[in-house]
């Protein structure tokens, strides 16, 4: 589950594959590192990170890809939706929470910054999900229903969330929570992974 640093030839291949005018010389091979990690909710797709270490702090862009084609994660859902196919997306009681965390980290929400409360490791991966979390599968509607403490645009809430089999996330309700308030110290802002 941790990042694997890619060797120079693979790094060069990725830099070549994602190249576009808009990126200019951002990823100079001499100062760029590529990493890859598997995601528990994707069968064939991995998460890639390109980092320019010549600037401070380091500048990173993230991609989903299959080692040949890469889609830039630009803050929208479309790039993720593209890979959320029946053959690729694995959503079950074990993977749905890591998927939700991934979604909150990479998709910009209209409501502002939203994140799951909890301590993260050095790779910003949640070490464990909050104990108050409830995950249920609604077979009739074919979706997961989750209740989970959230950092919600400056407040601490219990969020009710639905996730469809295509990975579409909808926050259906939020409530103030004393339990969540008690976990305030455990919220670490992250847009990294």
């Amino acid at each position: 589950m941790t990042w694997q640093i890619l060797d120079k030839p693979r790094t060069l291949r990725i830099i070549g594959a994602v190249k576009a005018n808009g990126l200019g010389n951002l990823f100079d091979p001499a100062t760029t590192e590529a990493r890859v990690r598997t995601l528990p909710f994707y069968r064939n797709i991995k998460l890639y990170r390109l980092t320019n270490y010549a600037t401070l702090p380091a500048f990173s862009l993230f991609y989903l890809g299959d080692d040949e084609n890469y889609t830039y994660l630009d803050g929208g859902f479309e790039g993720i939706r593209f890979y959320n196919t029946e053959q690729n997306l694995i959503l079950n009681k074990e993977t749905v929470l890591p998927y939700l965390d991934f979604y909150f980290i990479f998709v910009a929400m209209d409501a502002g910054e939203i994140g799951i409360l909890g301590a993260r490791d050095q790779y910003h991966i949640l070490e464990e999900f909050p104990s108050e979390t409830e995950v249920k599968f609604d077979a009739e509607r074919n979706l997961f229903m989750i209740k989970i403490p959230l950092y919600f645009d400056g407040s601490l809430m219990i969020g009710s969330i639905e996730i469809t089999s295509e990975g579409v996330v909808t926050i259906t309700d939020t409530k103030m929570s004393m339990q969540a308030q008690g976990r305030q110290a455990l919220y670490e802002t992250t847009t990294d992974y």
Partner: peptide, 21 residues
């Protein structure tokens, strides 16, 4: 040359070619 990059994370970079991201 200024490039505004779509990114959820606030960050910036500069290159010797006078590019600012």
């Amino acid at each position: 040359k200024i490039h505004l990059i779509k990114s959820k994370k606030l960050q910036s970079a500069a290159t010797p070619k006078m590019e600012l991201f």
